[in-house]
Design a protein around this nucleic acid. Structure first.
Lengths: 337, 337
DNA sequence: ACTTGGCACTCGGGAACACAGAGTGCCAGA
DNA sequence: TCTGGCACTCTGTGTTCCCGAGTGCCAAGT
C-alpha cells in the first residue's frame, strides 16, 4: 500500500516543508532529493499519499503539506532522533552544573531547553508524590503560630504557616519535631498519610490536639495543592515561528497550569519520549502545535516530566534529541545533589 | 500657550484613541464630546497641539494620535485615577485571602493584576535586603552535608545545600543553630553581614571552620543571587492588544529578569504610582509599551514592587487604579500573615 | 505494470488602477 | 476668535488582470 518510495517521498516532503515553511511541489522534490524518478511519478505517489491522508494541499495547485497523520508516520517510522553535538552536550553540562538549588535547576533547565530547541520549554518540578521526606521542621513564629517546613529528597521545600489551637512551649515543639522526623524520615510522600496516622499515639495526650492540627496541614500540603508545580519559558520563540492558529490561544493554554500538566502527559518509561502532534493533544486551543516530552528522574524512578511545545511544523529529530538529552542531564544533576 | 480648550481636546483625543484604536479626526471629536465649538476650531487647536509635539498624524489626512509626550501630559494633568468598583474590591480581597504561602500570594497577585487590567502583570517578590530574619535552620542531610534554610519575616524561604569541611555531630549542629538564631533573629537582612562577623567568636574553636563555611554560604545566598525574584503572567493579553512593534521583542524583554527589574523602577513612596510611557522606559525593545508600577509593603516599609505592562495606548486611569488597589491589598495581606 | 513527457487547467498572489471617504489646511467672513 | 466652505491629499479597498507554480490526466514508452 505504501511502498518504500512513497515513504521516501513523505519523508522528503516533511523535511522540505519543515525547512522552507512552504508547500512543496513535485518538481522541487526531485530537484532537492535525488529520487531517481521524474516529477510525474512523484505526483502519482503524492496523489496516493494524499488519498490516504498523510499530506494535503492548502488549495488546488499549490504544493503539498504534511497532515498530522503524516507527521505521525514520519516520527514513528521515517526519522531518527538526532543526537546533540559534543559542544552542545558540554554546554548543557556546565550550564546546569552551576545551579545551587532546585529552583535554579528548574529555571536553568527551562532556559536551556528553550534555547536549544528555539521553542517553548515546559518543566515540571519533581512530583511531590514521587519524592520522599528528608526532613520536617517546625519553626515557632509566635505563641500560637508555627511554620511547618517540609524538605524532600529532591530538594523541594514546602512551607506553611499553621495557627495552633493552644500555646505550646519550645520543649514540646522539640519533642514533636523529633517524633515527626523519626516517623517520617525517608518515608515516601505517598505513604505519609498512613504513617502519620500512628503519630498521635506516640505523643503525650496533651500534645495531641496541636499535633492533629499540624498533621492536617501537612497532609493538605501534600495532597491538595502544589501537587504539580510547573514552569515554562521561551515564549518569544513562539512569536517568531508563525503558528497556523492564533498565538493568543497558545499563550492562554500555557498559563493554565492544569492544561500544561496534562500536556506533558502521563508517564511512559523513564526518559522515553512522548510526542503529541497537533490534533492529538488534549486541548483544542493547541491545534497547530506539537509537544515533545520526556520523563526525568534520578536512578530508575521518574520524578516528573519536561518537554517543549512548538508549531506542528517543527524539526522533530533535533527537538527530540534535545529533549532527551536535557532530561537525562537533569536526572543526573538531581541524583548528584 | 495651551489654553483650557486645547487641553480638553488633548484629553478627548487620548480617550477616543484609547477606546477606538483609530486615529481621531476633528469631526468625530465634536460629535462624541460636546465641546461647543465647530470642527474647524478644533482643527486649529489640533494644529497647535501637533506643533508642540503632543499629537501626530500617521500620514497626511488621517486623524491624530497622541505621542508619548501627549500621554505624559494626559497622565500628569488631565486624568484622574479611577477607583475600582466595590465588586472588584471584594473580588480582590477574597481572591488574595485564599493564599496559603508567599509563593501563592505572588502567583495569585499576578493573575489578579493580569485579569483586572487585561495586560501583562509583573510582580516582584519581597526584596530580601528589605526583609529581616525570622529563623535560620540547619538540617543535617549527611555526615558532611547540611541544608541551610533561611526564613524571612515576609515569608520567603531560601534554602541551600552546604558541603562541610568536616563531619559534625547533631549536638554541635544544635548549638550552632542556637547561636545563629540568637544573633540573627529579627535582624534586618542588610545588617546580616556585620552581625555575622561576630559569630565565630561565640563558638568553641573546633566549630569555627564549619561555621565559616556555613556563614559564607549564607552571605552568598543573600547577596549574590536571587536578590530580586520576579514573576510575570498574562502574556495572552498582549497577543490580543496589537502592539505597534513586534510582540517578539516584548516577550524577550519579559524573560530577561534584569530588564524586568529595571522596568519596575526604583522605589518612589510606598504605593506611589510610577508610569513609564513608551520611549521613557529604559529598554529599546519596549518602545510602544508603557509600564504602570507601584511599591507594596506592610506598614510603612516598601518591600518590593509590582505593576503591569501594556501598549502605550492603554486606559491609564483604570490601569493605575487597579495597580494601586492591588498593591495596597497585597501589602495588607503580607502584614497580616 | 510502472514510468514518463506533454498538455490543459486551476488558483493564489502581486501589480496596476480607480475610487470613495475621511481628514486636513487655509481663507474669507461673521 | 470662531466658523463655514472649499480644494487637496492621502489611505484603504475593491476590481481586474496576468503570471507562474503546481496539479491531474492521458497516451506512449520501457
Amino acid at each position: 500500500m505504501l511502498d518504500d518510495r512513497k515513504l521516501a517521498v513523505l519523508r522528503a516532503i516533511v523535511e522540505d516543508y519543515v525547512s522552507t515553511n512552504e508547500p512543496v511541489g513535485s518538481k522541487a522534490l526531485v530537484d532537492r532529493h535525488n529520487l531517481g524518478v521524474s516529477p510525474a511519478t512523484i505526483r502519482n505517489d503524492m496523489a496516493a499519499l494524499e488519498e490516504q491522508g498523510y499530506i494535503t494541499q492548502p488549495h488546488t495547485s499549490a504544493g503539498r503539506v504534511p497532515t498530522d497523520k503524516g507527521y505521525r508516520l514520519f516520527v514513528d517510522r521515517l526519522s531518527q532522533i538526532k543526537p546533540l553535538s559534543g559542544a552542545e552536550r558540554r554546554a548543557i553540562e556546565t550550564f546546569l552544573a552551576g545551579a545551587v538549588d532546585l529552583d535554579e535547576i528548574v529555571m536553568r533547565t527551562v532556559r536551556l531547553l528553550a534555547q536549544l530547541t528555539r521553542q517553548v520549554a515546559v518543566v515540571q518540578y519533581p512530583s511531590l508524590t514521587r519524592s520522599s521526606v528528608r526532613h520536617v521542621e517546625i519553626v515557632p513564629l509566635a505563641e500560637r503560630r508555627v511554620m511547618l517546613v517540609l524538605i524532600t529528597n529532591t530538594g523541594r521545600v514546602e512551607q506553611r504557616v499553621v495557627d495552633l489551637p493552644e500555646a505550646i512551649g519550645d520543649d514540646r515543639i522539640a519533642n514533636l519535631r523529633a517524633v515527626l522526623n523519626a516517623c517520617l524520615d525517608g518515608c515516601g510522600l505517598s505513604q505519609v498519610p498512613e504513617t502519620v496516622a500512628d503519630i498521635p499515639e506516640r505523643l503525650p495526650p496533651e500534645d495531641r490536639p496541636v499535633a492533629a492540627t499540624i498533621l492536617s496541614v501537612l497532609l493538605e500540603t501534600l495532597v491538595e495543592r502544589h501537587e504539580e508545580k510547573i514552569v515554562f519559558g521561551g515564549t518569544a520563540n513562539l512569536a517568531a515561528a508563525d503558528l497556523s492558529i492564533g498565538l493568543r490561544d497558545v499563550l492562554e493554554a500555557l498559563e493554565e497550569q492544569v492544561v500544561l500538566i496534562r500536556l506533558l502527559g502521563e508517564t511512559g518509561g523513564l526518559s522515553e519520549l512522548t510526542v503529541r502532534i497537533g490534533s492529538e493533544n488534549p486541548y483544542s486551543g493547541l491545534r497547530g502545535t506539537s509537544i515533545v516530552a520526556a520523563g526525568y528522574g534520578s536512578g530508575d524512578r521518574e520524578l516528573a516530566r519536561l518537554g517543549v511545545l512548538g508549531p506542528t511544523r517543527m524539526d522533530y529529530p533535533v527537538t527530540m534529541g534535545a529533549v532527551r538529552a536535557v532530561a537525562r542531564y537533569v536526572g543526573q544533576i538531581l541524583a548528584g545533589s
